[in-house]
Amino acid sequence: MKLVKNIAIALTAVAGLASASFGSAAGKHPMQMEWSFDGAFGQFDMQSAQRGWQVYKQVCSACHSLKYFRFRNLTDLGYEEDMIKAWAAEYEVEGEVDDAGDETMRAARPEDAFPNPFPNENAARASNGGALPPDLSLIIKARHDGANYVYSLLNGYEDAPADSHVPAGKHYNPYFKGGAISMAPPLAEGIVDYEDGMAATPEQMAKDVVTFLTYVAEPKLVVRHHMGLEVLMFLGILTIILYFSMKKIWKPVKAGRNVYEDKK
């Protein structure tokens, strides 16, 4: 099985190099949490993801868009279609141009994306002291160690140390690159009334919203983990059979027999 060794060596090297090349994260190293979606058997904790949806809807969505998330995706989190329709209808989106040529607004439908809180980037900046609240659809994948990073950031607000310089209107957060973040601490005890009665501590809310956002960033994670197991098992068995098939075919060669000669 020298081949296995060769490949293993090569991959370890590549993996090592890939991680070595990302050595320059500027903020404080994020807290390492345990997540339901970690590991080969990881799945989304549905209860937590549902609570996270509530946190996003009631807190984050005031400033952050979620443009790749559609209301219909909520079926993946275990919601019924009627509920989804009702939630969607709470929001207005641009409708078609009417017969008089005027632009209209209509209630959102399940196939619509979650509406952006601001009409455009400039409006978003103007409302947020010049800073643009990033879209959160991919935030977990767009940051190193994204789940832990977002969790740490949400819980990481501190009083600024004496030697740091935090400009007016900004807040000190050591997990943020540079330490000064425009977002005010978003989570306060009890800011959300959880439907399932869970106590809404900042830690709990951060955990829930990270679970939700991880779902939004990687909606196929569960099916990917399942299919991966099947594929790896299949390839494993196939490779073992191929190995024995190879050993058998090679037997005369390994025995030193001249298998080519009689051909000529």
């Binding site: 299949f234 390839l235 068995i237 196939l238 059979i241 191929l242 024995f244 098939s245 058998k248 075919i249």
Partner: peptide, 13 residues
Amino acid sequence: LLHVAAAGMGAVG
């Protein structure tokens, strides 16, 4: 048997 198993499984895959 062995080779057919290998070829068959490969084909199925």
